[in-house]
Amino acid sequence: MVKAKRFILVKRFVGFPKPTDLKLVEEELPPIKDGEFLAEAIYLSVDPYLRKKVSSFPVGDTMVGTQVAKIIESKNPKFPVGKHVVGQAGFGWRTHTISNGELTAEGLNSAVLIDLADLPLSLALGILGMPGYSAYFGFLEMLQPKAGEWLVISGAAGAVGNVVGQLAKIKGLKVIGIAGSDEKGKWLKKELGFDHFINYKTQDVGAELQRIVPEGVELYFDNVGGDVSTAVMNNMKTFGRITSCGSISNYNDTELKVVPLQHALVSRQLKMRGFQIVSLANRWNEAFKQNLEWIQQGKLKYRETITEGFHNMFNAFIDMLNGRNFGKAIVKV
């Protein structure tokens, strides 16, 4: 018998998540059945969307999340022992998982990870995983960028934002990144090639945008929502385009806040589109192959913030929500 550890939801988050909202428990797993496999977690992902997603989960369920795991036992020929799998729905914050790899109600299934050669397996949770897919489709397909245009990215040093900026430079755009520390700004400009950086904690976003691009910007990739997004939209050109990928600035609010975006949307006749990357799950392989090619060509760089130890899942989650991560936040078991 294999003993698994998992974090279960004891209480739905109210405001900022608290350690007492989750509980680390141990359970004994049954023998696998025909068509099933047993996987042992190696890397687990902590992402902003998890904060919002948990609000609809039943108390007592395993905390949701994606992981890279190694198949250690199998009665399913599609999932042979020794291979690695990207486990999504049905896995979550747990050390060992029994799965059949089939599609879930969300349209997600487990997938055997292709050989990444000398690249870290953890990239399947970041630039070669859902954040990379969000950047690829959210920028290239939703915004339809043109060389020479100005792009603003909020949450620019996060798992999605930093990739969006690099894709924009590959496509010949001028990029302004918004994040919460000067250290992140140095990384974005010196290592990733962003043209400008704005620290939203110490600078006036609207005033800085007027200084940098007084005529207004064409594109905005939004990861945060809130006051930052209002400031950006008020400094966009007429018929500007916006992709809304997330709104981490209000995920921990206990009351719904009305953000005055409508004036900018109407007066500048902006086009704004939100998206959920799971709706494009049938095309993820396209983004995987292209991002992998750009990494191998040296056009895309990656950075990870790795926390050691499964017992530190909650700490890594909180650090990510507080913006302490550079690039993708990951836990190594």
Results as ranks from 00 to 15, higher is better:
Ile198Leu: 07
Val232Trp: 08
Val224Thr: 14
Val266Leu: 15
Glu255Asp: 05
Met233Ala: 07
Pro214Val: 00
Val205Asn: 10
Glu255Trp: 03
Thr230Tyr: 09
Gln203Ile: 06
Thr254Gly: 15
Phe221Thr: 03
Val259Thr: 15
Tyr220Val: 04
Phe239Arg: 15
Leu209Phe: 12
Asp222Arg: 02
Lys190Phe: 00
Thr254Val: 05
Gly206Gln: 05
Asp227Tyr: 02
Gln269Val: 05
Gly246Cys: 03
Lys257Phe: 00
Tyr220Glu: 06
Tyr200Pro: 07
Gly193Arg: 10
Ala207Phe: 06
His263Asn: 01
Gly225Phe: 12
Asn235Met: 07
Cys245Glu: 05
Asn250Val: 03
Tyr251Pro: 01
Leu209Asp: 07
Asp195Cys: 04
Ala231Asp: 14
Thr230His: 10
Ser244Ala: 13
Ile198Asp: 10
Leu256Pro: 04
Ile212Pro: 13
Thr254Phe: 02
Ala207Leu: 13
Lys237Met: 11
Lys237Thr: 12
Val258Phe: 06
Glu191Met: 06
Ser229Thr: 11
Phe197Thr: 05
Ala264Asn: 08
Gly206Asn: 06
Arg211Trp: 00
Lys190His: 04
Thr254Arg: 11
Ser244Asn: 07
Gln262His: 11
Ile198Lys: 09
Asn235Ile: 00
Pro260Thr: 13
Lys201Val: 08
Ala231Ser: 15
Leu256Trp: 02
Asp222Tyr: 03
Leu192Thr: 02
Gln269Trp: 02
Val259Ser: 12
Pro214Lys: 03
Thr238Lys: 15
Leu261His: 15
Lys257Ala: 11
Pro214Tyr: 10
Ser247Ala: 13
Gly193Glu: 08
Ala207Asn: 11
Phe194Cys: 03
Val213Trp: 01
Val258Ser: 13
Phe239Leu: 15
Met236Phe: 01
Leu256Cys: 00
Leu209Lys: 11
Arg268Ser: 14
Glu191Ala: 05
Glu191Ile: 03
Glu215Ala: 14
Thr238Leu: 14
Val232Lys: 11
His263Phe: 09
Gly216Lys: 13
Glu208Gly: 06
Asn234Thr: 04
Phe194Met: 05
Thr230Ala: 09
Gly216Arg: 13
Ser229Asp: 08
Asp195Ser: 10
Gly246His: 01
Ser267Arg: 09
Asp227Arg: 09
Leu265Trp: 03
Asp222Gln: 02
Glu191Pro: 00
Asn199Gln: 07
Ile212Met: 06
Arg211Ile: 00
Leu209Met: 12
Glu218Phe: 00
His196Ser: 01
Gly226Ile: 00
Gly216His: 12
Pro214Ser: 04
Val213Leu: 02
Val217Lys: 08
Cys245Lys: 10
Asn199Glu: 08
Leu192Lys: 00
Leu219Arg: 13
Gln269Ile: 05
Arg241Pro: 08
Thr230Trp: 07
Val259Pro: 01
Arg241Trp: 05
Met236Ile: 03
Val266Cys: 04
Asp227Lys: 15
Arg241Asn: 06
Ile212Ala: 04
Thr238Ser: 14
Phe194Glu: 00
Ala207Ser: 15
Met233Thr: 07
Asp222Ile: 02
Asn250Arg: 12
Ser244Lys: 01
Gly246Phe: 02
Arg211Lys: 14
Ser247Arg: 11
Leu219Ala: 11
Lys257Ser: 07
Gly246Pro: 08
Ser229Tyr: 01
